[in-house]
């Protein structure tokens, strides 16, 4: 569904990604793990076209998207939950959700909204409340819900567990699995390698801008090198 082929990305003279190739098939949960500064977020941003890849191709559903502008890419059927939630804090939950369906008709949006509220009953309780007044976990749910409002085929999640309590992280990961069962393909970037690999079908390990290892989630979880580096031995 999403093929990343030998992508190199630069920030000015600094090269952040070196020949990164990643393949995501429909219906999978693919996770990307790596330490701080490994280039995880850069890869995510490169998919979204900001910064654009200096060489290599990004193909989504058979269409090359690495030369397109960010807004055009984002309307192709992929959605991103940016790092750090980034909900519109002054707007209500309802308004936040409907910003996600900006380019869809009202009827379709209503239908998706009902589904999102089913997934996150917590958001329904807070429907008319300002997003900024909610807890971190609720905001993360809202950010995911907002991304789902565009009915994406591929959902990119950038560190959804960042700064959340373990029990909330568990809920978020449960939701991610539920989404996969509904047919949404998921690309998950995580520092929380343990949790991420547990639910992932396949995983990639990124180090200093290079993919150093790829295997099934279960294998990576038991891999000695990965355990040493990311799972605390």
């Amino acid at each position: 569904m999403l093929q990343i082929n030998n992508v190199n990305t630069h920030y000015g003279p600094i090269q952040a990604l070196h020949d990164v190739s990643i393949n995501i098939e429909e219906g999978e949960i693919v996770t990307l793990i790596g330490a701080n500064g490994a280039g995880k977020t850069t890869l995510m941003m490169t998919i979204c076209g900001d910064p654009q890849a200096s060489s290599g191709t990004v193909t989504f559903c058979g269409e090359e998207i690495n030369k397109l502008n960010t807004p055009d890419i984002m309307r192709k059927g992929l959605a991103i939950v940016p790092e750090g939630r980034r909900v519109f804090s002054g707007m209500t939950v309802e308004e936040n959700l409907f910003m996600g369906s900006y380019f869809r008709s009202k009827e379709e949006a209503q239908k998706t909204a009902a589904h999102v509220l089913e997934l996150f009953p917590r958001l329904e309780e807070r429907y008319k409340q300002r997003a900024g007044t909610m807890s971190g976990g609720e905001q993360q749910m809202l950010a995911i819900g907002r991304a789902l409002m565009s009915k994406p085929r591929l959902l990119l999640l950038d560190e959804p567990s960042l700064g959340l309590a373990p029990i909330i992280i568990q809920q978020i990961f449960d939701i991610i699995q539920k989404l996969r069962d509904e047919g949404v393909t998921i690309f998950l970037v995580e520092q929380n390698a343990n949790q991420a690999l547990r639910i992932a079908d396949r995983g990639y390990v990124l180090e200093n801008g290079r993919v150093i290892k790829t295997d099934s989630g279960a294998n990576l979880l038991t891999d000695e090198a990965v355990q040493q580096a990311y799972l605390g031995g």
């Binding site: 309307r75 991103i80 940016p82 519109f88 002054g90 900006y102």
Partner: peptide, 17 residues
């Protein structure tokens, strides 16, 4: 709404296309 959203968070706006 888009004006307000832009005031609130530019990156989120872009992430929504």
């Amino acid at each position: 709404r888009a004006w307000e959203a832009l005031r609130e968070d530019e990156i989120a706006c872009r992430s929504l296309g």
